[in-house]
Amino acid sequence: MFRTTAVRAQSIFRNALTPKKAHAATVSRFMSSHSTETDEQFDTRFENFFNRKDIDGWEIRRGINDLWGHDLVPEPKILIAALKACRRVNDFALAVRILEAVKDKCGPKVGEIYPYIIQELKPTLTELGISTPEELGFDKPELNLESVFHIH
C-alpha cells in the first residue's frame, strides 16, 4: 500500500523535482510574477486608455476606479486625457467628480499636490469650461444626509 502511494507520489512530483532544461526565453520559477512596468509606461498606458476615440462612460469610470486602486496621485497628463474623454462622452458631472477624487487622493499632502495639479490642468479646464469643485462650492459640505446606519 505504502509502496503504491510512494510510486504515485514520485510520478507526480517527478516533473516538479527534475530540473528542466533552461529555455533562453522562458525560465519557470515558483514565485509570483512581478510587474516590470516603469512609471512612464504606467502613465502612458493610462493616458492612451483615456485618449481612445471610441471610449464610453463605462470605460472612463472603470479606468478611474482602477487607477484609484493604485497608491499614487495620477499625473496631470492622465487627468487631462480623462477630462477630455469626459467631454467626448458629454458627462460634465464625471469631470467634476474626477477633480474631487484627485483632491481626496492627495491625502495629507493636499496643500502641496492639489494646487500643482490644478495649475497644470488650468488650460484644459478653461478650454472645456469645467469648473473646479471650489468654484461650484463643493469643497465645503452643503448637503447633510442622515447616515443610513442611523435611520432605523
Binding site: R87, D91, F92, R97, G129, I130, S131, E135, L136, E142
Partner: peptide
C-alpha cells in the same frame, strides 16, 4: 460647457452623484 451656469453645473453633478467628497 461654458454656457452652463453654476446652478446647472451643480444640478448636473447632483443628478449623477448623491454627495460630494466633502460631504
Amino acid at each position: 460647457w461654458k454656457n452652463l451656469s453654476v446652478e446647472e453645473k451643480k444640478a448636473l453633478y447632483r443628478a449623477s452623484f448623491c454627495q460630494t467628497f466633502a460631504e
